[in-house]
């Protein structure tokens, strides 16, 4: 039996009695990274790549049982041998490699191939079966050089500062915001950087992990209006349109995301500017990574990669959605089939 299945609440590994990135509390949770759509609190125990530990603890809670595993170190979990390998998505993000009998499976988690000064770069892990994300799995997504995008952000910020207007840049609070600060470190900047409260936690965790980030002046709620006139303000998307925005008088707004590749998204979201900065693989990177994995079978993370799978199949590859777990629901509390017992 294959070692990884699609299950509505995560990827199910029957031989380990574990879930990869479960969306509900389970006995054993193997994490690719610490984003909220991959990590929910309440599981009995978590395994993650070592650099992700602090971020995982923030979300899973101070009392959670967390087993950090150094990149590349193989450990047994149930009847599987499991290791974590850099995915380049954010600090501590990983591909999970699972060895079962003679077969090697790799679950990519979210990944990117573009430069990111705040995390270890993606490593190719040879495998038999590659389960890939494909958030941007259409032949219209290609990212420009991130340094050029950072140039654009700085130029936009400089123009705002010259008019005495704050520049509010919206981005995911964990990962993307810190990546932007990482790119801005060692650059000449037009003014101070202030943060929304939701961004601070991630900044602290990255700094604690020794990642070099641009200096930040503090939280916007503690700033005087005059402090913000030349400032770049980093905030999560949810802050846009909230009462918090009232502190940023006359602000120009921008949004950093791969979705900004599409003009309709730039316009509909109502930001002044869209900056094309993504932590996911673009189309060329997906094709390249699938090729380099050497996998005989390509599977896609549930809900991803329908078009890419069809295209690969047209080209004669064994590709498609990850198989659904055919057995009894391992989450139904009816012993003796609970995952804990299987292991």
């Amino acid at each position: 039996m294959q070692p990884i299945f699609h299950h509505p609440d995560g990827l199910y590994c029957p031989q380990a009695g574990a879930f990869i990135d479960p969306l509900v509390p389970v006995k054993r949770a193997l994490l690719t990274h610490a984003h909220a759509d991959h990590l929910r609190p309440g599981s009995d125990a978590y395994w993650c790549a070592a650099p992700a530990e602090a971020l995982v603890r923030r979300r899973a809670g101070p009392d959670a049982t967390i087993h950090p595993v150094p990149y590349g170190k193989a450990i047994p979990i149930g009847r599987l041998t499991v290791s974590w390998h850099p995915a380049g998505h954010m600090l501590g993000s990983a591909q999970i490699r699972v060895e079962h009998r003679d077969a090697v499976w790799v679950v990519s988690g979210d990944y990117k191939r573009a430069a990111d000064p705040t995390c270890a770069p993606f490593e190719t892990v040879p495998c038999d079966v590659f389960v890939s994300e494909a958030t941007f799995g259409l032949p219209i997504f290609r990212w420009p050089d991130p340094e050029a995008v950072v140039d654009e952000i700085i130029a936009w910020w400089r123009a705002g500062a010259a008019e005495g207007r704050p520049s509010a840049l919206f981005a995911y609070a964990y990962g993307k915001s810190q990546r932007i600060l990482g790119h801005l470190a060692r650059r000449a900047l037009p003014g101070p950087i202030w943060l929304h409260g939701a961004v601070q936690g991630g900044v602290d965790a990255y700094r604690a992990a020794g990642v070099a980030l641009a200096d930040t002046a503090g939280l916007v709620v503690d700033a005087e209006p005059a402090d913000l006139k030349r400032a770049l303000v980093l905030a999560p998307v949810s802050a846009g349109g909230s009462p918090w925005m009232k502190r940023l008088k006359r602000a120009q707004t921008g949004f950093a995301s791969g979705w900004m590749r599409i003009r309709g998204n730039r316009r509909r979201k109502g930001y002044d500017r869209g900056f094309l900065l993504s932590d996911h693989a673009d189309w060329p990177a997906l094709l390249r990574t699938i090729e380099e994995s050497g996998a005989r079978r390509i599977r896609f993370w549930p809900g991803h990669g329908e078009a890419l799978g069809d295209l690969l199949r047209e080209r004669g590859r064994d590709a498609g959605p990850l198989e659904r777990w055919p057995g009894r629901d391992p989450l139904t509390p009816s012993p003796p089939d609970r995952p804990s017992e299987v292991a």
């Binding site: 032949p139 219209i140 997504f141 290609r142 590749r261 599409i262 003009r263 309709g264 060329p284």
Partner: peptide
């Protein structure tokens, strides 16, 4: 994408 000219531009650029 929702727009022919834009789809083509992005596709070629990719």
């Amino acid at each position: 994408v929702g727009d022919t000219a834009e789809t083509v531009a992005l596709m070629i650029d990719t």
